[in-house]
Amino acid sequence: MTEAPGTAPDPVPGPGAVLVLGEALIDLVPVAGDAEAHRAQPGGAPANVATGLARLATPSWFAGALGNDGFARSIEHRLVSAGVELGLCARPDLPTALAVADPGPEGTGYHFHLQSTATFQLPVRTDVERFAAVYVGGLAAVVEPAASAVAATARAAAAGSPLLVVDPNVRQDRTLDAANGARLLRELCEPAQVVKASDEDLAVLWPDATPDETARELAAGGRLVVLTRGSRGSTAYSGTAEPVSVPAVPVEVVNTIGAGDAFMAAMITWMVSLGVHPGGVREFTPSSVEEMLVFASRVAASVVAQAGTEPSLPVDA
Rank of each mutant, 00 (worst) to 15 (best):
A4R: 09
P5T: 09
V12E: 15
G14Q: 06
P15Y: 04
G16D: 01
G16C: 00
L21V: 15
L21K: 04
E23V: 10
A24H: 05
A24L: 01
D27I: 05
G33W: 04
E36I: 03
R39W: 06
G43L: 10
G52L: 08
L53D: 09
T58I: 05
A63T: 14
L66W: 05
L66K: 07
L66R: 10
A72K: 07
S74L: 15
E76R: 15
E76D: 02
L79C: 01
L86D: 14
L88M: 14
A97K: 02
L98P: 01
L98Y: 03
P103I: 07
P103V: 11
P105L: 13
L114I: 12
Q115V: 05
S116T: 03
T119I: 14
L122N: 10
P123F: 07
R125F: 08
R125N: 02
D127N: 05
Y135L: 14
V136D: 13
G138N: 13
S148Q: 15
T153E: 10
A154I: 12
R155C: 11
A158I: 08
A159C: 06
S161D: 09
L163V: 00
L164M: 02
V166Q: 02
V166W: 01
P168H: 06
P168I: 02
N169D: 15
N169V: 14
R171W: 05
D173T: 02
R174Q: 12
L176V: 03
L185D: 03
R186N: 06
C189W: 06
E190S: 06
E190K: 12
K196E: 02
K196G: 00
V204H: 15
L205V: 03
W206L: 10
P207N: 10
P207M: 09
P207I: 10
D212I: 08
L218I: 11
A219V: 10
A220F: 04
A220V: 03
V225W: 08
V226M: 12
S231P: 00
G233S: 06
G239I: 12
P243A: 07
S245H: 11
V249P: 12
V249G: 09
V251G: 09
V254L: 13
V254S: 12
A259C: 08
D261Y: 05
T269L: 02
M271R: 01
V272F: 00
S273F: 00
S273G: 09
G275I: 01
G275L: 00
G279A: 04
R282E: 03
R282T: 12
E283F: 00
P286G: 10
P286F: 07
S287Q: 05
E290T: 08
E291D: 15
M292G: 13
A300N: 01
A301L: 06
V303C: 00
A305H: 02
A307I: 04
A307Q: 15
E310M: 11
S312K: 11
D316I: 05
D316Q: 07
D316W: 03
